[in-house]
Each structure stands twice: as structure tokens, then as C-alpha cells.
């Protein structure tokens, strides 16, 4: 009786499946629930990886519901690589289609925010430009320049109050979220990434810089998106979070 890994794997991921034959307790009797040690190890370790990755999703649905959700997720999407630090990238899509969370429209973006925070944590290190280099540029030269953003920087543009939901579930005394679209910048000044709510037009500004537009074109995109765009405030945030790594042509 040969047990191949296809059979072993299927039986591990499906708790209803029959245990493979050909496994014993060492004395020749069927292995029985000894096989369930592996089932349990796999389910528990992957659930723990998801709990680490998605603390806010867990807070939103509650601990017991999260375990059910994680159980369904890990069976539909077992990890495609041994890097647990990146496990769960299918979660936003999964939440959009999973029965119990389908009607909670904000959930996929909350999961995207959590994934981006984790990506930022593991992203390549970089050195910020000296703010004096920025101030030394004449306005025309600045408008014609390109800005390189830190590899750890992420932008999430959401139809939902995703930043406010994240904050409400991670900070004591944070205000209750109100319905609004929110753009969020995830920035890592040194080692610890944090999300920041972008001012009106800020999402358009960062998106334009990410696509390689000049500072001037990004400013125009931001003003078109919202005519009250505050460039000074936007730049202060980028400087304070060490988010600009190079200014040039």
C-alpha cells in the first residue's frame, strides 16, 4: 500500500476526507487519529499566519468568526510559497465573494490596507532626500522634476472610510468611522510602517508620482481632483515620513 503526496495533501486539507490507508501506529494498526495531528498542524499554523496578517479583519468579524473564515480561506487558497510573510494576498478577493462578508463592502479594502502595511514592513530600505535639496530648487525647476518614492511606500484609494475603520479598530478612543471615500498613504519612516489619511487630492498626487509624472503634472492632477489640494501639507507628510528618495529629471 503506497501513500502518495497527492492523496496525503488532499486528506490534510479536507477534514471530511477518509484518512489515507497504509499509515500505521508503528505496531501495524491503522494510524487513525494520528493522521489528524498533521491536519491540525496545517490548519492551526495557517490560521495563525492569517491572524498575524489581518488583525483588523479579525477585530471586525470577531475571533470565532475569523477562525471559520480562515478555515475556509486556507482550503480555497493554500499558500503558493513557503514565505508566510506574504501569505494571504488572495484575501481581499476572497472576502468580496465569501457569503458572510459579501455584504460588508469595505472588508476587501481593509484587507488590502493590512496587506500593504505588511509589504511595507518587508520592503527594501532606502535613504530619504535632504529636505534642503527640495527647498533649494527654484519653483519652475521643482515643477519640471520627478520625485522617486520609497520602495516601502504604498497608496490605497478606497470608496470606503478604510483609514477610519483601521484606526477605530487599532487605537483606543479613535472616532467612529463616517461614510466617506478615503485615500491612504502607507509610509515607513524607518522600520515601522503606518497608514496616513491623505488630504483631498492627495491620492491623485501620489498616484501621478507613482506613474512617473513630473511634480508639476502631479500637482495639476491633484488640483483637478480637488481644487482645495494643499501642496504644503502634502509635502510636509512626505518629508516627515522619509518618503522621497530622489529628486531629478
Amino acid at each position: 500500500m503506497i501513500v502518495d503526496q497527492t492523496e496525503f495533501r488532499s486528506a490534510i486539507l479536507d477534514p471530511e476526507a477518509a484518512r489515507p490507508e497504509g499509515l500505521t501506529d508503528g505496531a501495524g494498526r491503522p494510524a487513525g487519529r494520528r493522521f489528524d495531528v498533521y491536519r491540525n498542524n496545517v490548519a492551526v499554523s495557517l490560521t495563525e499566519a492569517l491572524e498575524t496578517a489581518f488583525p483588523v479583519i479579525r477585530a471586525l468579524v470577531g475571533e470565532a468568526n475569523f477562525k471559520l473564515l480562515a478555515g475556509a480561506f486556507l482550503r480555497a487558497h493554500p499558500p503558493a510559497s513557503p514565505l508566510m510573510m506574504f501569505y494571504g494576498d488572495a484575501m481581499p478577493e476572497f472576502l468580496a465573494n465569501f457569503g458572510p462578508t459579501q455584504t460588508m463592502g469595505y472588508m476587501p479594502d481593509v484587507a488590502r490596507l493590512e496587506l500593504m502595511i505588511r509589504e511595507s514592513y518587508h520592503a527594501e530600505d532606502s535613504t530619504a532626500v535632504d529636505p534642503a535639496d527640495l527647498q533649494a530648487l527654484a519653483p519652475d525647476a521643482l515643477m519640471a522634476s520627478k520625485i522617486w518614492l520609497a520602495p516601502s511606500l504604498r497608496l490605497l484609494r478606497s470608496d470606503w472610510p478604510v483609514f477610519s475603520i483601521w484606526r477605530f479598530n487599532t487605537e483606543d478612543g479613535a472616532p467612529k468611522p463616517q461614510m466617506a471615500a478615503e485615500d491612504v498613504l502607507i509610509a515607513r519612516p524607518d522600520m515601522d510602517p503606518a497608514p496616513h489619511l491623505l488630504p483631498p487630492g492627495g491620492g491623485a498626487f501620489i498616484a501621478a508620482l507613482q506613474s512617473g509624472d513630473t511634480f508639476g503634472a502631479a500637482f495639476e492632477a491633484a488640483t483637478n481632483a480637488n481644487d482645495s489640494f494643499d501642496l504644503g501639507k502634502m509635502l510636509a507628510l512626505l518629508i516627515e515620513t522619509n518618503s522621497m528618495t530622489k529628486i531629478g529629471d
Binding site: Q5, Y38, P79, A80, S81, P82
Partner: peptide, 14 residues
């Protein structure tokens, strides 16, 4: 073993 047909099971299997 821990990976089979591109699924990584995060356990050391016998």
C-alpha cells in the same frame, strides 16, 4: 515534505 503541486502546507510532513 511540505509542498505538493504548488500548495505549501506549512508543516513538516512524513
Amino acid at each position: 515534505w511540505s509542498t505538493h503541486e504548488s500548495a505549501f502546507l506549512n508543516d513538516l510532513l512524513p
